[in-house]
Structure formats: C-alpha cells, structure tokens
Simulated scan of single mutants.
Amino acid sequence: MSKILECSKVDPSSGCQYVVRGNTEEEVLQNAAVHAQQHGIRQMTPELMQRVKQNIHDE
C-alpha cells in the first residue's frame, strides 16, 4: 500500500495542496524533501522532520 503526505497537514499556513506520494515512508521523505525546496526549505530541522513523519499515512 502506498503512503502519502499532504503538505497542508505539515504547515497549514502554507495553503499548499500538494500531496507527496511514495511506496515507502523513506520514499515519501525523499519526495517531501524535493517538494520542500519549492517552499524555500533547504534543510530539514528535527522539528520539521517530526511533523512530516507524524503526517505520513497509508493512501
């Protein structure tokens, strides 16, 4: 079962409706890092990583 991460769940104030998808949590994390660059995020802080991981769920 694939996994998803809704950008708006990580940062509701962004208004971003992008959905990151992957077959594994690791793949979602890699894809999320690429998407984060569109928001000007170049490095994941521990706090941001925690919010991301908490919001990954099965599709």
Rank of each mutant, 00 (worst) to 15 (best):
Q54A: 15
V19Y: 09
E47R: 02
Y18L: 13
E59D: 13
S14M: 01
V10C: 05
P12N: 10
S14A: 14
T45V: 02
T24S: 14
Y18P: 01
N23P: 00
E6I: 11
N23D: 15
S14P: 03
C16Y: 06
Q54T: 06
Q50G: 03
S2M: 12
Q54I: 00
M1W: 05
M49N: 10
G40S: 04
S13E: 15
C7S: 12
H35F: 12
E6D: 06
Q50V: 02
G40K: 02
K3R: 12
A32P: 00
A36D: 03
K53P: 04
A36I: 00
P12E: 11
E27M: 07
A36L: 14
M1N: 11
A36R: 00
M1C: 04
S13N: 12
E59I: 13
A36G: 07
N23F: 09
V28I: 11
R42D: 04
R21D: 12
Q37M: 14
Q30A: 14
T24W: 03
P46R: 05
L5P: 13
T45H: 00
Q37I: 08
I4C: 10
V28W: 03
I4T: 15
Q50L: 03
V52C: 02
V10D: 05
V52W: 05
M49A: 12
S2G: 06
V10Q: 03
K9R: 14
S2A: 14
C16P: 04
N55I: 05
T24Q: 01
T45I: 03
Q50C: 01
D58H: 07
K9P: 09
M49G: 12
D11L: 05
P46E: 10
M44E: 01
G15M: 06
V10K: 01
K3D: 08
C7W: 13
Q30W: 04
A36M: 13
R51M: 11
